[in-house]
């Protein structure tokens, strides 16, 4: 392009290494430093350890001390075959010191907004408790599916009998006991999370980890 055709914007633009460049850098670095220190301090004061929070929740469900629920990496499984993810596994100690059960912290994909995260407690393959750890569903729609009394319908389900670990469909959701009209996606996400927990349990049993 010939020089005379240029629009002149380059000529108007100030050079990058302007004389006040150092002032700009110092001000930005100073703000960033102060912000970093403040955020670090606040993070230290408000940090919530997810493992500790889940262990406390499971201990609360069973009415036992938090020290009886411990995170156990040996129970973690590769959940790529499922429509969810095993985010954590906790061994629940019995009174004799042996393993009473396992609590899986699982997520189910396909919810209306992101994923649904559940804590599923299992003893001898039977679901003994299930609760929501985190979700972003609309309270008046998907939130109804995630209410404790609705999810409690899973209690007593035998996970060892479950063999389908794939993503649940709309028909699966509508045939489910927990289904509530206009909350199909949330129901599917919950089913996916429970199927992921079943996969984790059955894999651990098959491999002799429990």
């Amino acid at each position: 392009m010939p020089d005379e055709v240029r629009d002149g914007a380059a000529a108007k633009r100030k050079p990058v290494f302007h004389k006040d460049i150092f002032a700009c850098i110092i001000v930005l670095v100073a703000i960033a430093l102060v912000a970093g220190v403040l955020l670090g301090a606040l993070n230290y004061l408000t940090y919530v350890d997810p493992d500790a929070a889940i262990a406390a929740e499971v201990a609360g469900i069973y009415g036992i001390g938090s020290d009886k629920v411990t995170s156990d990496a040996s129970l973690a499984v590769d959940s790529s075959a499922t429509a969810g993810e095993v985010l954590g596994a906790f061994r629940i100690a019995g009174e004799d010191g042996g393993t009473r059960g396992v609590a899986y912290y699982v997520s189910g994909t396909g919810a209306y907004k992101g994923t649904v995260e559940l804590v599923v407690c299992v003893e001898d393959g039977i679901v003994t408790a299930i609760s929501v750890y985190s979700h972003s569903e609309t309270a008046s729609m998907g939130g109804k599916v995630l209410k404790d009394e609705n999810l409690a319908k899973f209690v007593g389900t035998d996970l060892s009998e479950m063999t389908d670990y794939g993503s649940s469909g709309s028909n699966d959701a509508k045939e489910s006991d927990i289904y509530i009209t206009s909350a199909t996606l949330t129901t599917r996400a919950v089913l996916n999370a429970v199927r992921t927990a079943a996969y984790a349990w059955n894999t651990c049993v098959a491999e002799g980890r429990i």
Partner: peptide, 16 residues
């Protein structure tokens, strides 16, 4: 705050 970097500075403050 220098005029040339006011927007990044504002975003930094707001983000904090």
């Amino acid at each position: 705050i220098p005029d040339r970097v006011r927007i990044p500075a504002y975003v930094l403050i707001i983000a904090t």
